[in-house]
Amino acid sequence: MQIADLGDVQLHYRIDGPSDGAPVVFANSLGTDLRLWDQVLPLLPPRFRYIRYDKRGHGLSSLPSGPYSMGALVRDAERLLDHLQVRDCLFVGLSIGGMIAQGLAVKRLDQVRALVLSNTAAKIGIPEQWQERIQTIKTHGIEALADPIMERWFSRAFRNTPECALWRNMLLRQPAEGYAGCCAAISGTDFFTPTSGLRLPTLGIAGSDDGATPPDLVRETTALIPGSKFHLIRKAGHLPCVEQPEEYAALLTQFLTDTGHGQI
């Protein structure tokens, strides 16, 4: 475990793989920490340098006062990659992590050479629903939203397994202020225009049972980028890397090959 002190925020990150490997960066979803990728990483080619981090207000990263802006979350990722001297990475972003990925690619094409936009969109929901969620968290805590969130995160079959309880516990252990702060960032974000200007290799991934970012929404965002590819993972919800890690890893591995990552 390592901490990058970026001044106004301290980000917890982890690096797996050789120090000279081509970088692959992961940004996780709202309400999860970097363990989101635990089942996928062992299935990926060992020659790459895999970088994961907890966004502000999540996991073992610090908890700045909210609300947060998407600009702040993008800047956190930018400064972390500068801190680690990362250029030309393949950036994998899931949900809010996919929004961060879009913003970073627009801002710093020297840092990002290819994108995986997983279970995400240029715009997610409407401000009113995010404000309602923020108010519920402030009044009753994350517990009040946990069951509906599990329904969006996972297919019915997975929700009936003991493992689902672990992910519910992870959600409940995120700081309420950090969760609400990131809800505010999503609420204020519409990347439709900037994302449509991107020109880089892009793979979109959706889950057939995703109740947060349905497949058509993910497909619509991915289609904004010319030449992009899209894949639907069946029997999976908002976190297909958890429900179908083998298929998810196979998609990432194929995309690494297709983009020639690490061969430039």
Rank of each mutant, 00 (worst) to 15 (best):
F48D: 07
F48R: 01
R49G: 12
I51T: 06
I51N: 06
K55G: 15
K55Q: 13
R56M: 10
H58A: 05
G59C: 11
S61G: 04
P64L: 07
P64H: 05
S65M: 12
P67W: 03
Y68K: 01
Y68G: 00
S69I: 07
M70D: 06
G71I: 00
G71T: 15
A72D: 13
A72K: 09
A72I: 08
A72T: 09
A72M: 15
A72V: 13
L73K: 07
L73M: 09
L73W: 01
L73S: 02
V74P: 02
R75Q: 15
A77P: 01
E78F: 11
E78L: 09
E78I: 01
R79K: 12
R79G: 00
L80C: 03
D82G: 12
H83G: 05
H83Y: 14
L84I: 08
D88W: 00
D88P: 02
D88T: 12
D88V: 12
L90H: 15
S95K: 08
S95L: 05
I96R: 14
I96H: 09
I96P: 13
I100N: 08
A101L: 00
G103P: 04
L104I: 06
L104C: 01
A105E: 07
A105L: 10
V106L: 13
V106T: 15
R108I: 04
D110C: 06
V112M: 05
R113W: 02
R113P: 09
A114T: 13
L115K: 10
L115M: 08
V116C: 14
L117M: 14
L117P: 01
S118C: 14
T120Q: 10
T120C: 15
A121T: 13
K123G: 04
G125C: 01
I126V: 14
P127Q: 11
P127M: 11
Q129N: 08
Q129W: 06
W130L: 10
E132R: 14
E132T: 15
R133M: 12
R133T: 11
I134N: 00
T136N: 04
T136L: 14
I137N: 10
I137Q: 07
T139S: 11
T139W: 05
T139M: 07
H140C: 05
G141L: 11
G141I: 03
G141F: 12
I142P: 11
E143P: 03
A144S: 15
A144W: 11
A144Q: 07
A146Q: 12
A146C: 08
D147Y: 14
I149H: 13
E151D: 09
E151C: 04
R152D: 06
R152I: 07
W153D: 04
F154K: 14
R156F: 05
N160S: 02
P162Q: 09
E163I: 13
E163G: 07
E163K: 08
A165W: 03
W167M: 00
W167F: 08
W167S: 03
N169W: 05
N169I: 03
M170W: 04
M170N: 07
